[in-house]
Nucleic acid binder design. Structure first.
Lengths: 198, 198
DNA sequence: ACCTGAACACCGTTCAAGT
DNA sequence: ACCTGAACACCGTTCAAGT
């Protein structure tokens, strides 16, 4: 065998990523294996290494797609005159995303996957862009702060919202209930903004 | 060979945990291997399975010790009349701990280690106890809230502090600088408390 | 009873060999 | 040039066999 040319390299790349995502969604990250992906797309393991450097590379690409998906969701935000309401909405969208794409979202913050994965620039840019979406709303909130202060405040609150999502997800998501988590997120957002405004 | 009885089971258990911690500190979690631990303590792999069910069990024990260590640090807090100051102090201790025991701290929130690790009760108790330390200070802050509201507020803020530590650690710890991270943590704490108090 | 170490199943990764 | 699949190194885990 060999030399089939049924799919272009680019097509195989997408097939691999799609198959990998499905596996992660269904079985969690620990269920992701090269051989399983190969079977799924009808190729052998060697072919996967034609289009990806290694597993670390493949994982990074998946994380990139997850960030793109999240960005798209955040951009679905409906316009509101009150920037505080928009920040609350962003937080709500984030929480919903974390729940709907739980296994993929979880992967974004797993760093034991590889020892010293130095984050590539294109990936960091995607992360920064998401922070930028929140920052934009913070600018509308109070014009009397410097850009640096606004940036720090938006980072503080957004990291905080993320922290609630993460800690809630590990162990007690079901016990507290997702409704209660949304309340907790809103509590953080509202009180922080109340303290920060003016 | 076999049958040495140079150490009791309990001694071997501690030797394994100590060796494992040293490896994690020096090389990160991804450097932790059964065979490496065995060599380090002068036994063979089989002996490790005499005192631990498996790697998941061993990891849980290490995480437990890390939580104990953290609790000890948080209890070093110096008494202050202003509960807000004490909460700030707790946040500062947490950030310091995350930095000083980076690899061990990071492990606490890695869930890809095993597929579905159901958290044991004794472990969840340790986590709850840490939340309890913060909650106690929140009670002093405002007596006009219900216990449920106090609990939710302390969870919201503490999760938020944790979120800043986590997101800062992934990628940009050096760029922003630890000094700046402490500032960001304090910004979150102060503004949240300002918004919540009364 | 305590401990060994060979064996097993299962990984990611490589690369000579086919078409 | 594209793809295969056997081979390699390296995991965690088990367990019959020694003392």
């Amino acid at each position: 065998m060999a030399r089939r040319s049924e799919h272009s390299q680019e097509e195989i790349k997408k097939m691999v990523l799609n198959a990998a995502e499905t596996i992660i969604i269904d079985e969690g990250f620990s269920g992701l294996k090269v051989r399983k992906i190969a079977i799924e797309i009808g190729y052998t393991v060697g072919s996967i290494y034609m289009v990806f450097d290694n597993m670390a590379d493949l994982i990074m690409q998946i994380k990139g797609r997850t960030l793109d998906n999240l960005t798209e969701q955040l951009n679905q935000i409906s316009i509101n005159d009150d920037p505080a309401k928009m920040i609350e909405q962003l937080a709500s969208i984030y929480l919903t995303f974390a729940n709907q794409h739980f296994n993929l979202w979880r992967m974004l913050f797993d760093f034991s996957l590889i020892g010293d994965d130095t984050v590539p620039d294109w990936y960091q840019d995607k992360v920064d862009h998401i922070f930028g979406i929140v920052e934009l709303q913070f600018k509308q909130l109070s014009a009397s702060y410097t850009d640096e202060q606004t940036k720090q405040a938006s980072r503080a609150l957004w990291s905080g919202v993320h922290g609630i999502c993460i800690l809630s997800s590990s162990g007690k998501m079901d016990l507290l209930g997702i409704k209660s988590i949304e309340e907790t997120v809103m509590l953080l957002v509202k009180n922080f903004i109340k303290g920060w405004k003016l």
